[in-house]
Design a binder for these strands. Structure first.
Length: 428
RNA sequence: GGUGAGGUGGCUGAGUGGUCGAAAGCAGCGCUUUGCUAAAGCGCCGUACCCCAAAAGGGUACCGAGGGUUCGAAUCCCUCCCUCACCGCCA
């Protein structure tokens, strides 16, 4: 969430930045400010009364130790002050809760370098890597998968309904090979620590990484104990458990940046996206992903974002897949992100690019929610910057890979890097 | 699920009703001294919020969370959460 001080001190700046996103978040700023003013005045009043009570109570203690009577003083405290204090306490707490709720609904400010624009058409296309492959045949992944028995969409639907995928045989093995390849690359060559986190996460974690409260309808929730509100959620991305790993901690500046890589399945309702990019395995309710997460200092976070994107690109380069990079404009930016690069891989079967990774710098937007800080060199505690992305979504990577590798004889040639992980050079 | 023990500042760990926001140690920061990849001495050193134009300064809250008792709670009572140990059940 945003810093209430920033909103208070530079409301116009905040509103202007929010306006670049489109939407109506700028309008919410005034409501926050109204409540903030009220909150502070009741808080001040409460604190003055508390100070008075404290002073009197201390005096009672002193007089008692001298054996003097303190009845009058005691009455004064309990009658006059206590009643008022409890009322002001309630008011203050309500204002605080309201403030948090209000702040949770307001999106992050786009970074100054982000191109201004209404929607995806204003995104900035950056140079990618490689070229569109010249293919003799150009079957798409659905055809290829069915012919070679790599996955079974019909039976997946039987098990769980539409929008599910079941990899089979060599397809399952290829998916596993891709996961292992990526984990090994990022841990051995890029210096990330591997984590294998829980897939079920608490509401607090979902709030910390901004999936909640705004996007609850897109998430899968479990209700083990509806009365206690102990609701758990299926993680929609490893970003959630991994970024929250250090929540409510104060890290030493010298241990930053923290770099994590995690493989997890991801669960998404994809509510409202029926019909969009849904062919085959491109948009499903459960998919595997290898995610990168960094926790950094404020000074280094954009540097770290660049290197994160490079780490992600490396996977595609080693797999010989053509891709491009898109810098999202203000209107296309995700709720919590200050700056985002999408990596889009070329899919010969779709004859288009597929978004396969979204690399974002959240600055301290998530860290404020998670209360994740670091102790700077000068001894001050600051909110950390969190980054994540390049979580190459496995089904789309899989699709691009088999479409790109198809040979005139109907087989699929795999990139050299995968041979040892897969145990063969070709699928035929 | 049952029983027992426990949750205190970045860390370790004292503290059982009134100058306790909290001893001590470690870590960190600053200075001094000895000239050697460090030691010693001294000082500083929690967080959030509020007041103040700002700095200085002042104030309030926070000892797992939430309630309660009391003029006053880290300290007493209740509920919950978590950790550890043992038992039961189970992959």
């Amino acid at each position: 969430m945003l810093d209430i001080r920033l909103i208070r001190e530079q409301p116009d700046f905040v509103k202007n930045r929010l306006t670049t996103r489109g939407g109506d978040d700028a309008a919410k700023v005034d409501a926050v400010l109204r409540n903030d003013a009220k909150r502070r005045s009741t808080e001040t009043e409460l604190q003055q009364l508390n100070a008075e009570r404290k002073r009197l109570s201390r005096e009672i203690g002193m007089r008692r130790s001298k054996g003097e009577s303190t009845v009058a003083l005691e009455d004064q405290v309990s009658d006059v002050i206590d009643e008022k204090i409890s009322r002001l306490k309630t008011e203050t707490r309500m204002s605080e809760m309201l403030q948090r709720e209000q702040l949770l609904e307001i999106a992050n400010l786009p970074h100054a370098t982000v191109p201004i624009g209404k929607d995806a058409s204003a995104n900035l296309e950056l140079p990618g890597w490689g070229e569109k492959p010249q293919l003799v045949s150009r079957d798409d992944h659905v055809t290829l998968g069915a012919r070679l028995g790599l996955f079974d969409l019909g039976r997946a639907a039987k098990l769980s309904g539409s929008g599910f995928i079941c990899f089979t045989g060599r397809g399952a093995k290829l998916e596993r090979a891709l996961i292992n390849f990526m984990l090994d690359l990022h841990t051995r060559e890029h210096g990330y620590m591997e984590v294998s986190p829980p897939f079920l996460v608490s509401r607090e974690c979902m709030e910390g990484t901004t999936q909640l409260p705004k996007f609850e309808q897109d998430m899968y929730g479990l209700d083990p104990d509806p009365e206690n509100k102990n609701r758990m959620f299926l993680a929609p991305t490893a970003e959630v458990p991994v970024t929250n790993f250090h929540r409510e901690e104060i890290l030493a500046v010298k241990e930053l940046p923290k770099k994590f890589v995690a493989y997890t399945p991801c669960f998404r309702r994809e509510a409202g996206s029926a019909g969009r990019e849904t062919r085959g395995i491109l948009r499903v309710h459960q998919f595997d992903k290898v995610e990168l997460v960094k926790i950094t200092t404020a000074e280094k976070s954009y540097e770290e974002l660049d290197s994160l994107v490079k780490d992600a690109e490396r996977v595609l380069q080693l797999l010989n897949l053509h891709y491009r990079i898109v810098e999202l404009c203000t209107g296309d930016l995700g709720f919590g992100s200050a700056k985002t690069y999408d990596i889009e891989v070329w899919s010969p079967g779709q004859n288009s690019y597929l978004e396969i990774s979204s690399c974002s710098n959240f600055e301290n937007f998530q860290a404020r929610r998670m209360n994740l800080r670091y102790r700077d060199a000068d001894g001050k505690n600051k909110f950390a910057h969190t980054l994540n992305g390049s979580g190459l979504a496995l089904p789309r990577l899989f699709a691009a890979l088999i479409e790109t590798g198809q040979q005139p004889d109907g087989s699929i040639r795999l990139p050299e890097k995968l041979h040892s992980f897969f145990g063969a050079e070709k699928i035929r």
